[in-house]
Amino acid sequence: MLAPYRSSLIAMVSGEDDDGQAQAALRALPEPIWVRLRPSVVAFLAKVRGIPADHLSQLMRAHGEVEEAHTMLTSRSAVRRAFAAYLLGLVRDPAAVTPLLPLLSDHDADVRREAAWALGAIGDPVAAGPVLDGLRRHHGQIGVPAWVVAEALLAMGVEIGPVLQLGLASEDAAVRNVCATVAGQGTYLSAAPQLRVLLATDGDGDVRASSAVTLGRVGGVGDTAILVRHTQACEPSALRRICATALGDLGQPESLGALAALLGDDDRRLAELAADSLVRLGPKGIAQLESPAAGPEGLSARAAVGALELAGLRGQLSVGADAA
């Protein structure tokens, strides 16, 4: 039944419907045939971007699907509410932001997740605060999956900065963790002061770890000393290791000495990560490895030799030499 219309749909999806004939043909489809074609349109809508996505959205609107989805947001069926939210996110309907917000506290987990996803897809930063609140526990279960919240916030752009700052001060460790991660992925430099505090004082190990990772990405010269401080033996092993890696991400030459000192640490994974960070710091870092590697057998030598061998296999040593 759908065979005659398949080529029109493919033309729209592939962006080859320049004259709009394919869309016109699909707009004119009678209801029974459209109902059968609709799942394919929805599936394609989730996969395409740009003009083809806009054209598919227009097609959905022409068939009244967007209006229908708005109505379904208050359906008694959780399946319908979730699907309606999903559809409104797919068509990126800005008018859906307000009606989607209450669904973030829906009793059904699927509805909450789809509402958060849709708000992220629409990308209106007005929804950032409510989406972040959705992360809080809901009757003992996670409100909205952390990854959905993180992706939604990232999709909302730079205007979520104030919300992130509020989130970093949240009492809920899951909220702080997501905000710390988003701050790193979205390069929110304004979050750095709070991240430094969280790294130093937070009671949750995951939050401290996320803060360290993010400082490695968005921090500056001044953060070298902070990260170095958290590689000291009094800190938890996991945090020391993450900070050693973050120093490599930060890429500041001020960390060379501290990383070189870690090569002889009793925590051998920490030594290995410090050596890897030195490799990533380029020729100066590699030079820090060469002297212990050439020296007498010992902990530092072992870490340095291992990192240099691996760097050699990866061709990083010649690159370093060329750069030097």
Binding site: R268, R269, L313
Partner: peptide, 26 residues
């Protein structure tokens, strides 16, 4: 190819390690 890479003793183990190998492409 053999690699002079250490395996950190985060967990106590019994069998003595012999060596570590990784693909040549690194």
């Amino acid at each position: 190819v053999p690699l002079s890479r250490e395996v950190p003793p985060d967990l106590a183990t019994r069998g003595a390690l012999i060596d570590v190998h990784v693909p040549r492409d690194g």
